[in-house]
Design a protein around this nucleic acid. Sequence first.
RNA 1: GGCGACGUACCCAAGUGGUUAAGGGGAGGGACUGCAAAUCCUUUAUGCAUCGGUUCGAAUCCGAUCGUCGCCUCCA
Length: 494
Amino acid sequence: MPSPEFRLYDSLSRTVKPITTTEPGHLRLYSCGPTVYSYAHIGNFRTFITTDLVIRTAQAIGWRVTSVGNITDVGHLTEDNVADASGDDKMAKALQSKEGESFANVWDLARYYANAFESDWANLNLLPLSVRPRATEHMREQIVAVQALIEQGHAYETPTGVYFSVESFADYGKLSGNRDREELQVAVRDIVQDDNKKNPADFALWKKDDKHLMQWFSPWGWGFPGWHIECSVMAQKYLGDTIDLHGGGEDLRFPHHECEIAQAEAKTGKPFCDHWFHVTFLQVEGEKMSKSKGNFFTARDIFAQGFSPLALRMALISVPYNKPHNFTIQTLKDSQAHTERFQESLSRIAAHGLEPDTFPTDSPNNPYQTIYEEALAAMLNDLNTSVAVAKALEGNKQILRDPLTAESAAHAAWFLRKMNELLGIVYNTQATADTHLEEEAEPIIAGHPISELIIQRAEAKNQRTSPLPIGSANRSPVPDSNSVTPPKEPLGAK
RNA sequence: GGCGACGUACCCAAGUGGUUAAGGGGAGGGACUGCAAAUCCUUUAUGCAUCGGUUCGAAUCCGAUCGUCGCCUCCA
């Protein structure tokens, strides 16, 4: 039986098109992960949940999925296009911040936040990825790739580092539309000019810097890799030269993904990836969420206000991934109520001796079959989560209306299992004792609207008061003892 | 300058040419209850930013206009 089409908007061709797999029924996808210099925020998770939904939807139509999502645990420069070596390093900066005081060094800091990230990941019911590579553990591969690019004439060494030559790769700009020379100049408008670069748009593959907090020895001396090289190298290592699908936040489209394409295709001469998805940035209470504004929330901030992780998950997917989504306290409250109604169904079903672990995987003549199929069809149509969630609620409403018998309870259990496999909003199958929330939840919701907290926080920020009203409560300044290991001497570290 | 998204009821939001414009929230009415909460039932857009066009037929396609927003810079 041919598998149904899984249609997804492709940023490269700018059309909605079916996902094709190199190997029939086997999807290989790469999703760009976070730089772990702080706790991941809800906008990060909109992106990661989108990848999770791609995986779940693919599995729902019987595909095998090999998923790779990196953790960037190298600081890089805050301004990656800046050619001089004076830019600040994200992780070094974090280490110098108030919260960073408790860490002995950047290695500890990265390890702590990477662990926190994986814990949030599980709490939000995200499926484990097949491979979760870290940049620091793939230094050799990155160095080898840079060497290859130099040998092929796509890269050159300068006194400050190694740069990729944009002119050597004709397709540079095909993803972002920054194709001609002049447009490119504007796209990278704020760069600091470095006379060592042949072209202002050339980007760093390796930075020479023997003062950097994280450094490795290379054929070009002590230094660290450019930001873009890790992803294309790790994607190709685990998924092959050509991968089926690649995604990330919309900010990564340019320059990050554009540079990944250039590096990967220049090196192998083969297409790197034919299908790209980008997740639109979240807004919060009608405003752009950004670090500089201080109105962003970590997942933990939301949990600390008494909202369940599944409620956050549901709120984040209530609007499709590629549409503007204004995240509000109202949506979060609604989602919390819906989550509780799923709980109600689960406990009624439990009265018939059925627990999620024992929910049937098969259920002939199930009256909920149609609703499930409608939800699946919505997901296959460019991840229409609004409709899929509506279907989950519709089915749940019917369950709550039904004075359950043993038979109808089994039908309901099947439905909830299938919806949960597809959307992950009914019950958590990923959280374990290791991923407990660090603090007991605060009383609740109504008295703590996020909108108020945003204002308080912004005011506090303006007045430079400390501690911040949000986030401080659940941010243990002292890392868990088991999450900190002595700084591991990495391969080639000085 | 480049790339892109959006404008549907009080609010969020689905809708990819064809019978009565999903779903959720809110609000009104009702059932249940000693009262309330919860729950259940029910009502709530002759209308889809504006104007023009294509069509037997358009919220859906095309054009123009107005408006809002995002990314390209730290950021997913």
